[in-house]
Design a protein around this nucleic acid. Structure first.
Lengths: 157, 157
DNA sequence: GTATTCACTGGACAATGTGTGCAGCGACCG
DNA sequence: CGGTCGCTGCACACATTGTCCAGTGAATAC
């Protein structure tokens, strides 16, 4: 477990310019093409790289409002609540957290008014005792991984 | 703004099998290659597709612990706090939310013990009044976008 | 009603990149 | 000291890309 500096540079390079291929990457990194291919294969089978799926912006899809909801779940209803929330498209992500029967989920909606509809749908389920919602106003640090990759590859040095 | 069904199918296809190229995608979708290329270009300049960067798993990097921290910020210190948090690699994401001077951030750490170090570093800054942390235990719904894409493309139909 | 615009089709071309395999080489390990 | 491993540099056949084009149908503007 862990990545070395070459892995780190490769990940950073891919993150900054995803369109480049293996050959171009090998030129940039100053190593043989086979090496880059082997590293990529290893990173993928390692699970370090989960995939190269498109990163879609919900706002551009017409869902500019993001919110986080903390849900309190009735004892023993966890499984049902998960299944319920998985069926709601506007639930982008769901975590169970410390705290008795608590979950945290990320929601999006078409507008603040629409958020009400989404929340109603989310909490309109028997196992949910209480919900507290925080609407996101600004996103100073969008989901990122590069700094952590750099950190991890330097630790491994 | 908005995507049609072809856009939706293309996004789903790319999300499920990112390795396929434009040509293969056009075969799967039953349209001409030029069409797929044009759609892709449009989706990217639209901002619907932000990019195709690698999706890196923090756990595989040696950071298996995830937590969410709610921070209460002293009036007028927001900008400084943002700059501070941006320098911490373990801060993967930061949002300002409703609630007086509240922020929500996603953290990762090498272990529960290491989380203490991360939190200390995060809150060891003057503008932060109080921090409440919830450790993630399970992640029943990992960050996803496909259901929303399907929803959006059907709405547009 | 007619002209214009637009998106899609289907095809072509040169250039590039990919998947794959190979031999050689230095480093590390038992 | 032999074996294993990762990297290099190279080769080949094949597939894909970027780009351009003419033709067509549908929607839109005049």
């Amino acid at each position: 477990m862990g990545i070395d500096q070459l892995d780190g540079r490769l990940l950073v390079l891919l993150a900054e310019e995803p369109r480049i291929g293996v050959l171009e990457a090998s030129r940039r990194l100053g190593v043989a093409r086979g090496t880059v291919q082997a590293r990529l294969d290893r990173l993928q089978s390692n699970g370090v790289i989960r995939g190269f799926g498109p990163q879609v912006d919900p706002a551009a899809l017409g869902y500019p409002v993001t919110a986080f909801a903390t849900l309190q779940i009735r004892q023993g209803q966890g499984t049902d609540v998960r299944a319920h929330l998985a069926t709601v498209p506007e639930v982008l992500e769901l975590h169970t957290t410390t705290g008795s029967g608590d979950m945290l989920c990320r929601l999006v909606a078409r507008s603040n008014a629409d958020l009400q509809r989404v929340i109603d749908r989310v909490v309109g389920f028997d196992g949910i005792v209480r919900a507290a919602t925080a609407i996101v106003m600004e996103n100073p640090v969008p989901l990122r991984i590069i700094p952590l990759v750099k950190q991890a590859s330097e630790d491994q040095a």
